[in-house]
């Protein structure tokens, strides 16, 4: 009896963890208009519906744009800051690091609220651009921390060797530092992409007409349960999972070897 208890617990835990996701995906293939038992299907009608929905497709394009754009900026800024702090002696470097990490300690709602106040008071207004700015704010600390943590003495020796052989600093960065740090740069980038892709509250506060996918799903939620929501929700979930699995299978696996 006691021998099976851990396995029973493991199975129960996995049922709990996968129950909502399973129900979400299963009833996205529902035939009929209610995503609750009994299951009649499978049918792809709801996937056809979302593919034909102009608003959803526009939101999808916006989400991709914001995720990749904001992650690229966050990783570029994070890399430069990490390089500057790891390779140059600066006064007050602990303070700078603290300042760059600070947005991590504040909830997304408060980051979004602060930006919203400044943007509306200054008359700038909100748009897809401002949501992307917000996503850079929350992803920059992560990108910086990941890349900074991976800058070790090993790369520094290679950089010194390149410099001794006459390479200028920009050349050293492009030809030595970035290739050696590529795994952690890619990890930071894809982590930012997933977080931005899933993020709701900042996008909700800082967009108006052009919205991202989670915001569009939010407004569809008002009309209640629908297999169409299951279909688009399953799609959002599967993309996040695909990016995370990609990270795990390529970058982290290599990193451990």
């Amino acid at each position: 009896m006691m021998r099976f208890l851990p396995w029973a617990y493991l199975i129960a835990a996995f049922v709990f963890i996968y129950l909502p996701v399973g129900v979400l995906v299963l009833f996205s293939f529902q035939e009929g208009s209610l995503p609750v038992p009994p299951f009649n299907g499978p049918s792809l009608q709801w996937y056809q519906t979302i593919l034909g929905d102009e608003d959803l497709m526009a939101a999808l394009r916006n989400s991709i744009l914001v995720a990749f754009g904001s992650s690229a900026v966050a990783v570029a800024l994070g890399f430069l800051a990490a390089y500057g702090l790891a390779r140059h002696v600066l006064p007050g470097s602990a303070l700078i690091r603290g300042l760059l990490i600070a947005p991590l300690t504040v909830s997304y709602l408060i980051v979004g609220l602060g930006l919203l106040i400044v943007l509306t008071r200054s008359g700038f207004g909100v748009s897809l651009w401002t949501a992307a700015i917000g996503h850079v704010v929350i992803n920059l600390p992560l990108a910086f921390a990941i890349i900074y943590a991976s800058m070790g003495a090993q790369q520094q020796n290679a950089e010194r060797a390149a410099r001794d052989l006459g390479a200028s600093e920009p050349k050293v960065i492009v030809l030595v530092t970035i290739p050696m740090l590529l795994p952690s740069i890619a990890a930071a980038f894809f982590l930012s992409v997933t977080l931005s892709w899933d993020e709701f509250i900042i996008s909700f506060l800082l967009t108006r007409f052009d919205v991202t996918l989670p915001v569009e799903i939010w407004s569809l939620l008002r009309s209640g349960l629908s297999p169409q929501l299951n279909a688009i929700g399953s799609f959002v979930f599967l993309i996040s999972v695909a990016v995370v699995l990609l990270l795990e299978l390529t970058i982290f696996r290599k990193g451990r070897q």
């Binding site: 963890i17 996968y18 909502p20 996701v21 979400l24 997933t194 892709w197 899933d198 993020e199 709701f200 989670p214 799903i217 939010w218 939620l221 929700g233 959002v236 979930f237 996040s240 999972v241 990016v243 995370v244």
Partner: peptide, 9 residues
Amino acid sequence: LPFWTSYVV
């Protein structure tokens, strides 16, 4: 794995 889902979804 399901940790990586939007709060909304």
